[in-house]
Design a binder for these strands. Structure first.
Lengths: 178, 178
DNA sequence: GCGATTAATATGAATTCGCATATTTTTCCC
DNA sequence: GGGAAAAATATGCGAATTCATATTAATCGC
C-alpha cells in the first residue's frame, strides 16, 4: 500500500486551441476590464474609497452638479445604489446635494472642496496609470482599442432604452463616434 | 408672481470635448463590457439562470471537472462566492462536486446531463449573439479588438499574483497572445 | 515518519447591490 | 386651473458579494 505510483501526474491541461470562452468577445471584454482595473482599484481602496465612490468622484470632476439618474448611468450603476453611495459620500464630506431650482424633483450632486481635491488627485493618478498601460500596449493599438470600445458601446446600447437618444445619453460617449 | 420667465432653459450640456472619463481606457472597457453584455445577460436571466451561473456553465462546457479555485479565476469571481454558487447549481441539478482522487483537498466541479444541455444551448445562443455584434462592428475591427483585449489581459495580470505563470493561469487566455 | 507550514475549499458575518415600490414634483390634457 | 399621467429620487427588503477565518488535506524539513 506504500509506493505504488509516485509519478507526478500533470493535470494542468494547456489547451491552446481555446474552448469557447477564451475567444468570446463578451468574456474578453469582462476579463480585460477586470484585469486592467485591478491595480488602480487597489490604489483607490488604499485611499479609503470604494470603487463606486471613485467613479462618482471622477464623473463629478468632469462635470459638477449632475443629476442622480444621469450620474448613475454614467457611473455604470443603478440609481438606487448611487443614491445610497451619495449618502455615504455626503456623510464623509466629499459631496453635497442641492435640489435643482427649476425642477425640484431633480437632485444635483456637487463636489465639496475636499471631494474635489481627492478626485483631482485620483484623476491624475488614473491618467498616469492609463499611460503606463497604453505605453505597454502601443499608442496606435491603444487608440484603435479605444475607438473600438466606443463603437461597441454605441452599437450595443438600445438593450436598455431602445435607441435612446436625447437627454439620457451620457454625452461623453456620444462624441467622436465617427 | 405668475408668468415671469417661461423660457425653456436647456440644462443638458453636450460637451463633445469630453472630460476625463469619456476617453479613459478603464472606463471605456467597463462601459463597453456592460453595454455589450446587457442583452445576453437578460436572455440568461430569462432562462432562470443568473449571470455567474451562466459563466460557470460556459467554463465547464469548455473543460469539465475544473477545480474550484481555477474556475473562480476563469469566471472572474471570488473563490468563496463561486463555492456558494456551485452549491446552488448543485441543488438545481446543474453540476455535481467530486473530490480529486490524487489530492483530496481539491474539489472538482462537473456538469450533470441537465447542466450540459443548458450550457450547450446557451453557448450556442452566445455565439449567435456575438456574431451579431461582430458583424455590426466589422470582422476586421472585431478581430483587432479581440487581440487587443487579450493583450490588455496579458499585460495587466500581475497585480493579482505578480507575474504568475504556471498552474494558476487561465489557459485559454495564454494562448494566441503573439 | 512527525510536526510545522502551505494549499484548497468552506463557512459566517457584514456589507453591497438590485428590484419593486413609495414619495414628491412637474407636465399634460381637458 | 384641476386631476391624471409621467419623471426624478428615495426607501425597504431580499439576494448577492466580499472579507476574514475555520477546516481539511498535502507537502516540506528534519
Amino acid at each position: 500500500m506504500a509506493s505504488e505510483d509516485d509519478r507526478i501526474e500533470i493535470d494542468i491541461e494547456i489547451d491552446r486551441d481555446a474552448g469557447f470562452v477564451g475567444d468570446y468577445l463578451l468574456y474578453l471584454l469582462a476579463a480585460a476590464s477586470d484585469a486592467a482595473s485591478a491595480d488602480f482599484h487597489a490604489h483607490v481602496r488604499e485611499q479609503g474609497l470604494r470603487v463606486p465612490e471613485w467613479r462618482i468622484l471622477a464623473c463629478l470632476c468632469d462635470e459638477d452638479g449632475q443629476m442622480v439618474t444621469q450620474l448613475a448611468q454614467l457611473a455604470l450603476m443603478e440609481q438606487s445604489h448611487l443614491t445610497k453611495i451619495v449618502d455615504q459620500m455626503a456623510t464623509k464630506g466629499l459631496v453635497k446635494r442641492r435640489s435643482d431650482e427649476r425642477d425640484r424633483r431633480r437632485v444635483r450632486v456637487y463636489l465639496t472642496a475636499a471631494g474635489r481635491v481627492l478626485g483631482t488627485g485620483l484623476v491624475k493618478k488614473a491618467r498616469e496609470h492609463e499611460m503606463s498601460i497604453v505605453s505597454r500596449l502601443g499608442a496606435t493599438d491603444a487608440a484603435r482599442l479605444k475607438a473600438a470600445l466606443k463603437d461597441i458601446h454605441a452599437i450595443c446600447r438600445g438593450g436598455d432604452d431602445a435607441a435612446g437618444r436625447a437627454s439620457s445619453a451620457p454625452a461623453e460617449l456620444e462624441a467622436s463616434l465617427s
